[in-house]
Design a protein around this nucleic acid. Sequence first.
RNA 1: GCCGCGUUGGUCAAGGGGUUAAGACGCCUCCCUUUCACGGAGGAAUCACGGGUUCGAAUCCCGUACGUGGUACCA
Length: 508
Amino acid sequence: MSKVRVRFAPSPTGGLHLGGVRTVLYNYLFAKKQGGDFVVRIEDTDQTRFVEGAEQYIFNCLTWCGMEPDESPVTGGPYAPYRQSERKELYRQYAEQLIRDGFAYYAFDTPEELEKMRNDFKTAENPSPQYDGKVRMQMKNSLTLPADDVKKLLDQNTRHVVRIKMTANETISFTDIIHHEVSFDSSLVDDKVLLKADGMPTYHLAVVVDDYLMKITHAFRGEEWLSSAPVHVLLWKYLFGLEHMPQWAHLPLIMGPSGKLSKRDGATYGFPVFAMNWIDPKSNELTEGFKEKGFLPEAFINLLAVLGWNDGSEQEMYSMDELIAHFSLDRVHAAGAKFDYEKAKWFNHEWIKKLPVTNYQQRVKEIFESKNVTVTDDKYFAKVLVLVKERCTLLTDFYDQAIFFFVQPANYDEASVKPKWDNEKQDFFTALITGYNAISDWNLISIETEFKNLATEKNIKLGELQMILRVMLVGSKMGPGVFVIEETIGKTETVNRIEKALTIFSLF
RNA sequence: GCCGCGUUGGUCAAGGGGUUAAGACGCCUCCCUUUCACGGAGGAAUCACGGGUUCGAAUCCCGUACGUGGUACCA
């Protein structure tokens, strides 16, 4: 059996969304598991939809996710070029071969004529008429025009396309890895355009030709392609032989709260849809990405992998290596899955807890710096991150959870302190300052001992005091143990904060 | 409209003729902690519907409904 080769073939028209990343992921996992090649091919055959920067963006996303292609327009490879626009000249010969063999034909209909046809044939039962076996003999093409006219039109460089001539009353079926036997009635499939008037191939011709030329063995794509699969199967049969056709796997769709997931859902429901931030160069509109939202790539990959796949065990957390080891296409669901942002966040939380902070320290540091907090001591920073990581769901949560380790509270949860505040407390904290100042070896035990001894001496309940102390240090009732906070921020800072809070609380 | 694909709790899902129909997220209650989390113990909640086949159907078959995708010189 020949070496496994899979391809991810995005069209560089904008952001890379969840479903796209999962398609790459399944490609990648399958290839790595089989020791095969993972190639990225850019399908930029629609020049009108070209978007500046979109291709680079896709590669940035792949890098962030940790899925580097073996062959691509940037890394090159034995089947270059990997950009379909650069392969333009290649496709015409195949289109012409199909015409010679009677499987395709030239069509000269103008867009206006096509529109007229769709209008004329439109009925209640058939709201969107196709250019198919039922109408093609009434259109302007090399099937209806005399050969001489066709030649003349061609010689005059009249704008034309090449269309496939769909067979009639044939059952086209193939075996899909996920859906198993799938079949279609060819009479119901239209004469898809293969080569456009600008000389570019459509997706239909290009996938088949390139999958063949690039020796792709397994072709995975979203289920939205299933309906056009019969065209591809026929093209394979006519051009290269069904025995060379890759095995298809039409992956289930990832659904949003209402239907197919769209980038609009992100804005509407408040969760990211794209892998990374995407700014449309024309409109300047920003669509938020998982990365910038505060997701770890490990979590992003993990949550995508188990959205539509599981290995039959109860395991839910998988590293990329574990996924490669466990992944199999026959356990991929046939049904679409609704994306659940709550569960996505849970995965991220789990990965934040699981991974050593060194793994994401730099990213968190950037988040702090973007909020004008300068981190000077990386060791101190790492220590703080360890203390608060279990209460962070997103990387961006670290700021709120740890900011008090760097700056004094700007305001206090007075509502919690006020009812508990009295002269005895005032007295206690004044004495505490003295006691703390006298400590020479500032550590968890010495701090806690001093605090507790003083509380016993003054005969005040420990709990209330701890709560007040916490508010003095943090500003609110949150964070790790109070004594741990004191130890971490140090004696001077601790005393400073108590003194400062005292000036405010004493007015209660 | 037509065609394709699909249908186990709110969501992700295991299970593929005989099970008390796993587990996870979320939600609720309680414990821990006089903080927020983490952790722990419980709880509510499911086989779309109708017909078959069978001693027995969540599991097999057929319908229906619903969902979803396609129906472009877009991918």
